[in-house]
């Protein structure tokens, strides 16, 4: 592979990164080729020693996306970062994809539970209001109207405040898990190397 082909393959693999970053990265490899040539190495030799440009490009992309997930306030930014790191190697299907899936299920499950508690609270509140205005809709043997009203109010307040507490707790847990995930992804990238071309 010659210099032009190498740089083109690398540029293709860097797609999606900010243009300034792409140019900066390419200039490092361009400089590498020009110094190597001036020291009497051949283009093929230099390219082979650099390693597969597609893999190197993927490594830069993973780096960039994880960096973004780290600095972004959006929780969703972790998702492309996880996929980019999984794409680095087969090894990561076990060490990144499986734990990510487990954590995603855990977080989604907790958010669904929180949603359910809040919906139950809203339901209780709606029921209590309905009872207040249309008592004839309800068939409640024996209990006095006032106590049913207070029971309804108590239940709706209880569920709503539990829901609010859960939402706060799960929010902090989500943020915490994402911070840990970013640290783990960085660690994982730092272990990644590209083999020399034979």
């Amino acid at each position: 592979m010659d210099k032009t082909a190498y740089l083109r393959e690398l540029e293709d693999a860097l797609g999606g990164l900010p243009e300034a970053d792409i140019q900066d990265i390419l200039s490092d490899y361009r400089e590498h080729f020009s110094v190597g040539l001036s020291e009497g190495r051949t283009m093929t030799e230099i390219a082979a020693n650099l390693g597969d440009p597609a893999m190197i490009g993927r490594l830069y992309r993973a780096d960039h996306l994880v960096q973004q997930a780290d600095s972004s306030n959006r929780v969703r930014a972790i998702i492309p970062a996880v996929f980019a790191v999984i794409g680095l190697g087969l090894f990561n299907i076990f060490f990144v994809a499986v734990p990510s899936l487990l954590i995603a299920f855990l977080v989604l499950g907790l958010w669904m539970l929180t949603g359910l508690v809040i919906i139950t609270g809203i339901g209780c509140f709606a029921g209590t209001l309905a009872y207040l205005f249309f008592p004839s809709w309800f068939v409640i043997g024996g209990a006095s109207g006032v106590s049913v009203f207070f029971l309804g109010l108590f239940l709706s307040l209880g569920f709503l405040s539990l829901g609010a507490l859960l939402a706060i707790g799960v929010w902090f847990l989500t943020r915490f898990l994402i911070r840990q995930a970013v640290r783990y992804l960085k660690f994982n990238i730092s272990l990644f190397t590209v083999r020399r071309e034979p």
Binding site: H32, L50, I56, L59, F192, V194
Partner: peptide, 24 residues
């Protein structure tokens, strides 16, 4: 960059292109 990469790859068997992402 080149100097750094050579000093490392002279001693350690590694694809030289991997060192630039690390530098960045």
């Amino acid at each position: 960059g080149y100097e750094l990469v050579q000093s490392i790859s002279r001693n350690i068997d590694i694809a030289e292109g991997t060192i630039y992402p690390l530098l960045r």
